[in-house]
Write a protein that binds this DNA or RNA. Sequence first.
RNA 1: GCCCCCAUCGUCUAGCGGCCCAGGACGUGGCCCUCUCAAGGCCAAAACGGGGGUUCGAUUCCCCCUGGGGGCACCA
Length: 492
Amino acid sequence: MRFAPSPTGRTHLGSGRTALYNYLLARQTGGQFILRIEDTDQKRYVPGAEEELMEGLRWLGLSWDEGPDVGGTFGPYRQTERRDLYKKYARQLIENGNAYYCFCSQTDEAQNPTDKQKRQHRDICPNRELPLAKADTRIASGESHIIRFKMPREGNITVTDAIRGDITVENSTLDDYVLVKSDGLPVYHLAVVIDDHLMQITHAFRTSEWLPTFPLHGHLYNAFGWEQPIWVHPSIFLKPDGKGKMSKRDTEDMLNEGKSIFLGDFEKMGYLPEAVVNWAALIGWSYDDKTEFFTLEDLVKKFSIEKLNPSPAAINFSKLDHFNGLHIRALGVDDLAKRIRPFFEQAGYQVHYEHTLQQVAEVLQIRLGTLAEAPEKGGFFFKDEIHPDAEMLIGKKQTAAESLAMARRIEALIQSLPDFSEDTANQPLRDLATELELKAGHVFGFLRNALTAQKVSPPVFETMIIIGREKVLERIRYAVDALEKLASISPG
RNA sequence: GCCCCCAUCGUCUAGCGGCCCAGGACGUGGCCCUCUCAAGGCCAAAACGGGGGUUCGAUUCCCCCUGGGGGCACCA
């Protein structure tokens, strides 16, 4: 198995999924997972892309057995470092009569833009039947040249995709594809065939956008007399609305909406690698008619090529959120604590006590869609003081004075409790509400606002225990002061 | 324009001739639980694109149409 990306930009979720499938099958069968960098396009090469790619794969938990950084028996694993190999094999094709040197310039072809759609290069090239000796002479004289595949004019070819079956194409619809560029580097088609053969690749995964040139690869294998790997073309991803595949513009719009399909962005958005793996695996693949929650280990056991779906699939971000929630809840509390810590710290909160963080993690666990929500939902736990608006402290259908009276009673009650726990405080607080002819919601609502300055929060008792009685009383006193000021302005 | 691929709820999908008046999940709506918010539980609405065949019987097999997607570079 190999994953062979090109370092020409940021790594997409689609690449992540292809890498995942490679990884799963390799681990399942005890095979090797090879990372090969296809960097033959020097013009589009993006520095740093290779690093981001590897970081993304590592983050997902996909480790490779051979690759540019770890080496291996079939190296080198960067195609620009393999250029001499390709030359040798290209020459072999020429000598076999399966390819030829072409001296047509790019401008020659560009001169006939209208013809280009109708006429194939094979019909207009004067070099196709040029004797090899003559071509060699021209090359020796320094003439710029490329190498093209000599596509048969007649007949057809059948190639086999593992999820679609046989695909037969008339050779007449195929052209003399360029195999080696004038810079001496091979084009993808040639390099992938040679490398996959030399690296003894058994399964070649690539998305279905490669289907159109699939027949050429079959021809190349035949020309070399090599046995083909099992080809697997998973479907491409469509935009969330299902209308077409993701364009550069679409990914930018997505970023503006706080969404992204770049592997490098998921972590800071608060997604778990476990969730991204689970989510991505299920876009175009399924296990059965009900199971959807999978860990990476589950997937290693259960992945199968047979269950891959050939249809294009729209990306569904709400499903990612769902899986993220499931995986957050599946985490151990200490693990979750570890993972939310950086988000609190980035938001400017000081996490002084590991014990408090653990308690916060426990109470937030069922309330988090993403880890990034932790500060907004639980930041108040780490603040020294809470300053809610006085207006917020007034209960429904209450005056400031009434709320103040209630607040003073609550303060006194909590102060007087022999123990401070839900068991000891719950009933007395409810009784207080009854006595004041209020609803329990008034009492809890006041406490929630006074303690968190938020209209929604974890349950009041759990919150109070974590904050601690001393700080609870401090925060209530602040609230009482605020209400006093308000009540003195607008009495009644 | 040419070539290729695909076709079940809005979305991701199960279904490989009768188990299907089509199952699961996300999302949506409702109810329960409840100190808010969640989580959880229950319920609901929601699909086999159309037409021909084959067959005792088609969502499932074949053909056509339609629709969707991809590709037509000295990019991958």
